[in-house]
Design a protein around this nucleic acid. Structure first.
Length: 348
DNA sequence: AAGCCTTACAACCGCCACGGG
DNA sequence: CCCCGTGGCGGTTGTAAGGCT
């Protein structure tokens, strides 16, 4: 009789008259036109203002997962599939973090796709979709140390992704209601970049601390010693004051706010030399970027089937042959990281 | 053709983190 | 410092559509 969720919790959609279930096109129209005209503002107040018999939470979900104009719908490309798999190997079921790397996909969509397609496919390949290890455990047996290496790097990437996610959030919060789906160019102006000019330790990027500190504190208290210092320009400082961090960073040519600066701090935990040798097979002088985290991500994400095997052509894949060389690239991208880690790594 | 089963995905639920008062 | 409101996140459910027998 009494709902199990009535005690101690504010009811959300249980108020009499509030509708649940699938949205009608009329409701969609109301929500869409209201947000386009007024922004969403307070989600709780929105249904009343928009004339919807829905709870605010339902409106927010409908908007973020379906109605937002800046989301991509339809079949996932094999590139996207591999991105999801690889990031899932690193991050687990952290869909929002994964979604930051598939910017036009929602976390809900990625989660659904994982549960209905990718999880089964990995299982059919003999890979545990939770651990991303072979079910018989043979491939990784005897590599516990290397697995630890991967785990450590995963933590690194984990923190970086959280920082990115935070960036995206802040960027959205800053924007007026509709900015988030208006022309990207306006948010990331393409004009000539100002001269990159370190500004020294005193204006330490507190904003970066804010972005990455919390994430990394979970994994390494020393993270901030290696990150970000000296990358802010005067212009970025001004943008920081105005709140437009992301645009400022983009103007700086910094796609990723987490900058690794080995020349400023000799990392006690690992070196870019080691990273480049172990992960890319050559020394750091050949590494395109000294942004270690970015390189790490690129290594993972670029190693996908569009490299010479026809890219999205197999997107009908559900077939077990699946291929797009799924197996090979999957293990290439993940196991190579493990297997190439040198025993004399400065990290481990 | 009908009923059953499976799949896909939209939507909901409950918990948690965060910020403001 | 605490409380409360709000929004975000991940897990789960509901249901429509398609496939199979």
């Amino acid at each position: 009789m009494v709902s199990k969720k009535t005690m101690g919790r504010t009811p959300c959609c249980e108020k009499i008259g509030l509708k649940k279930g699938p949205w009608t096109s009329e409701e969609d129209d109301k929500l869409l036109s209201y947000i386009q005209q007024n922004g969403h503002g307070s989600w709780r107040a929105l249904p009343l203002n928009a004339g919807l018999q829905r709870c605010g939470k339902s409106c927010r979900l409908r908007w973020t997962n379906y109605l937002r104009p800046d989301i991509k719908r339809g079949k996932f490309t094999s590139q996207e599939e591999h991105t999801i798999i690889q990031l899932h190997a690193l991050l687990g079921n952290r869909w929002s973090a994964i979604a930051t790397h598939l910017q036009k996909r929602t976390d809900n969509e990625i989660k659904n796709y994982w549960n209905t397609h990718l999880k089964k496919r990995l299982a059919n390949m003999g890979i545990d979709p939770v651990t991303h290890k072979p079910k018989n455990g043979t491939l990784l047996s005897g590599h516990s140390k290397n697995s630890a290496n991967l785990s450590h790097m995963a933590q690194w990437e984990n923190a970086r992704l959280e920082a990115e996610a935070r960036l995206v959030k802040q960027s959205k919060l800053r924007s007026p209601a509709l900015d988030s789906f208006q022309a990207q160019d306006s948010e990331f102006p393409s004009g000539p970049s100002p001269v990159h000019k370190p500004v020294g330790p005193s204006p330490y990027p507190d904003v970066l601390k804010g972005w990455i500190g919390g994430a990394w504190e979970k994994t390494s208290s020393s993270f901030l010693e290696h990150v970000g210092e000296g990358i802010l320009t005067d212009e970025l400082e001004r943008e920081k004051d105005s709140g437009n961090y992301l645009a400022a960073l983009r103007d700086e040519g910094i796609d990723n706010p987490v900058q690794f600066t080995p020349e400023l701090h000799e990392p006690p935990l690992f070196s870019t030399e080691w990273a480049s040798e172990s992960m890319l097979g050559h020394t750091s002088e050949h590494v395109p970027s000294d942004n270690f985290a970015e390189t790490f991500t690129d290594l993972l994400l670029n190693n996908s089937c569009d490299e010479g095997d026809g890219g999205e052509s197999d997107n009908s894949n559900g077939s077990d042959g699946d291929s797009c060389e799924g197996n090979r690239n999957y293990w290439d991208s993940i196991l190579n990281l493990v297997n190439s880690s040198p025993s004399d790594s400065p990290i481990f």
